[in-house]
């Protein structure tokens, strides 16, 4: 439960309010993780927040977290400079089980900063590209200025990923799509009978996306979602993230849609 000290060795401003930090432990082994897991990232003296890992799990190098500056802790993290020390607990939670997609089409549906937790899974799939059939990334975000990982997106396309992008608000100069990310699901080239889908973003977006995937013919047990709840301890003790019988920090965040479809949308849980 005690945060390990990690030194900030690099920082990238991804959009006006989103940034990526590169962290290395001040001592000891690098942090091992599987795609989809999160850590409790702390700015000492301010607090800690749960943040998913956004870098590759299979490549040695600094721990990557992509963070949106939306609160006191994330704002403090945004002001950290190279050389500063931050705290890291974890990794915690369940991951994207990409290996279950071997021999199948894999579809990633990302909304906004939800692309960050999915990025390690996409990189994992691309590192074993021959084990999968079609790889599809469907990405919806607020505006062209809010597109994350633009370099990665172009690189993924170069590796045979079918990438469809849409934005909620597009200036006339934007020649791409404008509309909900769910509108991309009927257009994408995948066989719903042989598809494993990973969905991450705001919960309303995930509900709509999962429904659109089911409508396309993907079975609920072939859809994974990453739930967001109030993670505090990260180890299932404090109960802040309880979601009826689930503790999202240990039973999730990645869960089968078949398991949670009946719970999503209920105000009482």
């Amino acid at each position: 439960m005690v945060p390990r000290p990690f030194r900030l060795v690099g920082r990238r401003q991804d959009t006006t309010d989103t940034f990526t930090v590169l962290l290395e432990p001040t001592e000891g082994d690098p942090l091992g993780f599987v795609p989809g897991q999160f850590t409790m990232l702390s700015a000492f003296g301010v607090g800690e927040v749960p943040v998913s890992v956004s870098g590759a799990a299979h490549v040695a190098g600094p721990l990557q977290h992509t963070v949106r500056d939306v609160g006191a802790v994330t704002h403090a993290l945004s002001r950290a400079s190279v050389g500063d020390v931050l705290g890291v607990r974890g990794p915690y939670g369940t991951g994207w089980d990409v290996a279950h997609g071997h021999g199948k089409d894999v579809v990633f549906v990302a909304g906004g900063i939800g692309l960050a937790p999915l990025r390690p899974a996409v990189l994992e799939v691309l590192s074993h590209r021959d084990r999968y059939r079609r790889v599809v990334v469907l990405y919806g975000t607020r505006s062209p200025d809010d597109l994350l990982f633009a370099d990665s997106l172009a690189d993924w396309q170069g590796q045979g990923v079918e990438l469809l992008v849409t934005v909620d608000y597009g200036p006339p100069s934007w020649a791409g799509r404008v509309g909900l990310v769910t509108t991309l699901i009927p257009r994408a080239g995948f066989d719903p009978k042989y598809t494993l889908a990973f969905v991450c973003g705001p919960e309303v977006m995930m509900r709509r996306s999962a429904m659109a995937l089911v409508e396309r013919g993907v079975t609920p047990d072939s859809i994974r979602v990453s739930l967001e709840r109030n993670m505090r301890c990260g180890v299932g003790l404090c109960g802040h993230c309880q979601f009826r019988e689930l503790f999202i920090c240990v039973d999730g965040p990645v869960l089968s849609y078949a398991r949670v479809a009946g719970l999503l949308g209920y105000r009482e849980v």
């Binding site: 900063i113 937790p117 909900l180 705001p202 919960e203 309303v204 709509r208």
Partner: peptide
């Protein structure tokens, strides 16, 4: 339906989940 969901501005500051593992 799409217009209503977009009215939520899910990816804007108001739609950002502070407790989310993001």
């Amino acid at each position: 339906v799409a217009s209503r969901v977009r009215l939520l501005d899910l990816y804007g500051a108001a739609g950002a989940g502070h407790a989310a593992p993001r």
